[in-house]
Amino acid sequence: MKILVLAKQVPDTDKVKIDPNTGTMIREGLDAVMNPLDMHALEVALRIKETTGAHITVLSMGPAKTEEMLKDSLAFGVDRAILLTDAAFAGSDTWATSYVLSEAVKRLKIEYDLVLCGEKATDGETGQVGIEFGVLLNLPIVTYVSRIFEVSKEFIVVERTTEEAFEKWKVKLPAVISVLKSVAEPRLPTLNGKKRAMNQKIEIYNAQTLGFKPEEIGLNGSPTKVIRVCNTKLTRNCKLFVGKETTVGVRKVVELLKPFLRK
């Protein structure tokens, strides 16, 4: 069985710093790690590999730094890591990203029986690429997968969690499965894995070698464009009660809550 994991690199931080002038994120000095939600997808792949045997490819499009993240993924026992990187890819929206990824799969003849990805990336938070990728390759897609029950050559049985229900789906392979956190807890890399990964190569392709035209990729190939960014100045006029005044504050809150008192 061949498994393709789509992964995105995100900055390794929980404290986002914003450039006050441009409104963009300051990424300088931040390491690239795999999107935490994609790690859960990778874990599913690794477990399938452990139980039934599988060949795992991780595919990512991103800046050159993404190589670090792919190196890390090799330490887990990933068999093949492919990076699509080019300045011309920069500024891609979800459509352009899905287009490049799906075309790369076709053009590089990457084989797959199952495609796995995380529900969304922790930075962009759109959760669209996996789905658009699947449609472009005409694959069945199941989103919000919270459990894997069974995998065989022909199908996969999964649990999908929605607002109202837990659904059990039997899906024909090849298919795209996008997973929630709860699907499987990612493992930690081992020393031996890390050492092995040091000698493994990552395949790197640019726009030219993949045969993309400049107008169909990156900012040019993206139908959506950010026209304005503003800092979330949600600042309300907070009436602050400090020290001796806290009792006054408490009284105010009590007044506000009074109408809601259970009779």
Partner: peptide, 26 residues
């Protein structure tokens, strides 16, 4: 790596290495 190899020699069952924030928190 140096440290991990020493620990392996001393009979560690496994040596897990977390070198990003996410894994370290784990």
């Amino acid at each position: 790596i140096n440290l991990g190899e020493k620990l392996q020699q001393m009979g560690a069952l496994e040596v897990y290495i977390a070198d990003n924030r996410y894994q370290r928190l784990k």
